[in-house]
Design a protein around this nucleic acid. Structure first.
Lengths: 114, 114
DNA sequence: GCTTAATATACCTTGACACGTATATGCTCT
DNA sequence: AGAGCATATACGTGTCAAGGTATATTAAGC
């Protein structure tokens, strides 16, 4: 389980991460919201913690888990070069469509991205 | 091999994708540049093609592979909510640093993101 | 101090997938 | 048509990680 990509390949872990975007959560809260057995949650949290995706603080018997940004920023960084690529493709497609059919130009313009 | 995340979990596949950012490549070119056995390249390309990451066109005996944007945009989309989260964290850190040490303010400001 | 709640860990089993080696398919050129 | 190159597929094997069940740890409250 070396790379950040292997970590987020697991659906349950992605679910946990998405859940933590809103706010920190205890193990029990995660368990209930995602309907997964407690050992499963704990094991995935361990993987996420060791990979730096989350950190935990102690609150009585509970442990509160919250996100840490670095690993996902690593994914973001890997993705960056591709972003240039696909926005170029979208632009090219739009230019192509503009030439093909002027009648739908207005409609498309309103929903154009970037 | 359902999700796009499982696809990009494999390091060789990520290498192939990164290689294709610059331009389309034949199987042999990929094989040589990444120093991996030909069946390995072909098998990974098959996975990438079936998942929509790449498409191929025939050029005599060669097959030229090029990127398709959609699956990686899916990753991008999943990542989006987290981006809000970590830029907030960075801002908080910067404010904190601004208070701590005014002497380095100028230098940091020049390299600040977003 | 004992019981209960919250979380972590141990152990086992199963399945998936990446790799290597060998072979098949397909195209080109003479 | 046959030889040679480029790419794809088949098959057998080993590894590793996820899940389930059971149990251990730690803290709280009476």
């Amino acid at each position: 389980m070396e790379s950040v990509f292997e970590i987020i390949a697991e659906p349950n872990r992605r679910a946990i991460l998405s859940l933590l975007v809103s706010s920190q959560q205890s193990v029990g809260e995660i368990e209930r919201q995602l309907r997964m057995p407690q050992p499963t949650v704990s094991k995935h949290l361990r993987v996420l913690r060791e990979a730096g995706f989350v950190e935990s603080t102690v609150d009585a018997q509970r442990r509160l888990y919250r996100l840490k940004p670095e690993p996902l920023q690593e994914v973001e960084a890997w993705l960056a070069p591709f972003r240039r690529f696909w926005s170029a493709r979208v632009d090219a497609l739009e230019r192509h469509l503009d030439r093909m059919d002027q009648s739908t130009l207005t409609k498309r313009k309103t929903t154009r991205r970037r």
